[in-house]
């Protein structure tokens, strides 16, 4: 009977493209689809088509939409942040592998991982301000608080580069370690954390000049960050180690680890702050972690190579004040 109910729900939403209020989106990067999961029943209730090879997603500055980057078809699919309903397709965004809006909402930046360039757009109308060709697999990006600079990790060349958003000029580019991926600016705006996927930890970088201020061992294949929401603690996925670490950025230490097999990657937190959802790329699942206990409480089947994950926000007060805008780089504002 339960299966029948789930199938019925799935059929309804498959035809409308609308998700339930407590839905979670997971991008199946090796398929042309995204899964819609019911958080309460912890089952996949629908799977919808989306371009080709979707990897990451981002909330628009007005908090009304979440944009999915379809890398091979060079477009963004906009979904209603509350319902998951399809709103629009933004074309001519070339290879939008990783993407983000500057904190002031004026700039939209994409890292074209496959095509080796960084594109800086005026967020209003997605008008291209400048394309910066840069060797080395531009991977993930983050912004400074005053929206002047975007920081981009270059996975192949092992560098971190900073670009002026207004002029699109290179400010600096420094060697940072092997295969840097996730990058996040801490709330003090004075420290960048960069995850080194080819090593076993992260480095702390001065955003002014790229100088390495420190490092922290976390686990092999340190990859991506997600803020816990208190401005101090961050989650970090260690892909090769198969763990997620909880970091205290004040003391710069690992508070705890949780084992998540299958190449853990992107993360998001439920709106009540109780659960961390982590995609398990290899196992075609998304893991649910009880944050208080730092323990996996569920692992939900999805599509092939799940990458980005996102909680729909049914209670979003879009247009009535600031909300937490998120990207898979772990940027917060």
């Amino acid at each position: 009977m339960k299966k029948l109910a789930i199938a019925t729900i799935a059929l309804v939403f498959a035809t409308t493209g609308i998700a339930q209020a407590d839905s979670v989106l997971v991008l199946n990067s090796d398929e042309a689809s995204y899964s819609v999961i019911s958080r309460s029943s912890r089952t996949e209730i629908a799977r919808h088509p989306v371009g080709r090879e979707p990897h990451h997603l981002i909330v628009t500055p007005d908090g009304k939409e979440v944009l999915i980057g379809s890398t091979v078809t060079n477009e963004l699919l906009g979904l209603d942040i509350k319902t998951g309903e399809r709103r629009r397709v933004v074309k001519d965004i070339i290879d939008p592998y990783h993407l983000g809006f500057s904190p002031d909402g004026k700039w939209f930046v994409t890292a074209a991982y496959r095509l080796d360039h960084v594109d800086i757009f005026h967020a209003d109308g997605f008008r291209l301000a400048g394309r910066i060709f840069i060797d080395g697999l531009p991977s993930h990006l983050a912004f400074d608080k005053d929206s002047k600079t975007v920081f981009v990790t270059l996975q192949q060349s092992g560098r971190l580069a900073a670009f002026d958003l207004k002029t699109q000029a290179l400010k600096w580019s420094v060697p940072i370690g092997t295969a840097p991926a996730g990058v996040v600016m801490l709330p003090d705006d004075k420290r960048l954390l960069v995850a080194l996927t080819g090593e076993d930890g992260i480095v702390v970088v001065d955003p002014k000049n790229g100088a390495i201020q420190g490092n922290l061992q976390t686990g092999k294949g340190a990859h991506n960050f997600w803020p816990k929401g208190d401005g101090r603690h961050y989650f970090l996925s260690n892909r090769v180690e198969g763990t997620v670490s909880l970091l205290d950025t004040d003391q710069m230490k690992v508070v705890s680890n949780v084992r998540i097999p299958g190449g853990p990657d992107c993360m998001d937190i439920t709106l009540d702050g109780k659960e961390l959802w982590v995609t398990q790329r290899f196992l075609r699942r998304v893991a649910v972690v009880d944050i208080e206990q730092m323990k996996v409480v569920a692992s939900i089947p999805v599509g092939k190579s799940p990458h980005g994950v996102f909680m729909l926000r049914p209670g979003s007060t879009a247009g009535q004040g600031p909300i937490r805008a998120v990207s898979t780089s772990g940027e917060t504002r």
């Binding site: 697999l137 996975q155 092997t178 295969a179 996927t197 080819g198 092999k220 294949g221 790329r281 190579s305």
Partner: peptide, 13 residues
């Protein structure tokens, strides 16, 4: 991981 080929992590899988 040993030989610094993490760009081939997904293709390797």
């Amino acid at each position: 991981f040993r030989f610094g080929l993490m760009a081939w992590y997904e293709p390797g899988f």
